[in-house]
Design a protein around this nucleic acid. Structure first.
Lengths: 132, 132
DNA sequence: TGGGTATCTGAACAGCTATTCAGGTAACTG
DNA sequence: CAGTTACCTGAATAGCTGTTCAGATACCCA
């Protein structure tokens, strides 16, 4: 902490020309204020990001979002190049992460992308390299 | 493929009451059209998602977005609970993933969140459980 | 130029993850 | 109720990832 304050002090000197104790306090407090402004449940965010960051699961979600409606597991499976079991695991992970919802109809299961999934893909689409 | 067509045929029978060969073709073609409508570079998307899905890197980006301006490495380090080296690796990964940009000023390095990073966090914030 | 500082890099390794395999469950059908 | 179908689950394992340690690099300053 002391060492970190020293480095911060040197940064402030570099930026402002000089630096007193209050300058350091102020800078540290600003950082702390930023951190305490973080949303409460950031773990759920990271889970959603990681779950969506996998090839199989990303492809499934992209398909559901593109379709714009719920699809049956048997419509999803041919699109991704893994076993039925892997698709099932993927859909289970996606459901738990809040990226898809599940509806049962007899032996069939229908999955649909959530708003969160749609919002994330939309954010990526809007900021893709060479877009805008 | 045949097996999958059979399952799809049974699904269509279940949904529509009956199903001829054209019905199956039409359904398969629709799925294929969805897939070919995917953006070209989805790998970069998944990289961005995975990079942002890590605790250290998420926290750094969240800090930079909250600050709304570039910060020096020495301002970032005290906020995350890992070694200087880990922070450096994290910032390097984030830069490569297009989530932050880097500016040199002497021995100091300043990092700032990109639009892509901001858009992703914003998507998460707008769709958080119990929001809206 | 020599010492100090800020940050980066590569290797190593513990821990996590994605897939498959084998088998299980629930629902329809005759 | 017996067979079939659609999908799920748990264990196993190969491969990936995140962190640290040790050392390197680039820059500043006296």
């Amino acid at each position: 902490m002391t060492q970190r304050s020293e480095r911060l002090e040197r940064l402030i000197v570099q930026q402002e020309g000089e630096c007193c104790a209050e300058d350091i306090d102020e800078r540290v407090e600003t950082l702390e204020r930023h951190v305490s402004a973080f949303p409460a449940d950031t773990e759920a965010d990271r889970t959603a990001l990681n779950v969506l960051g996998n090839d199989t699961r990303y492809t499934i979600v992209r398909l559901l979002v593109t379709a714009g409606k719920e699809l049956c597991v048997c419509e999803v499976t041919p699109v991704v190049d893994v076993s039925d079991s892997a698709v099932s695991h993927a859909l289970s992970d996606l459901t738990e992460a809040g990226l898809v919802t599940r509806r049962k109809d007899g032996t069939w299961r229908y999955y649909e992308a959530t708003e969160r999934a749609t919002a994330l893909l939309d954010a990526l689409d809007r900021t893709r390299e060479g877009t805008q």
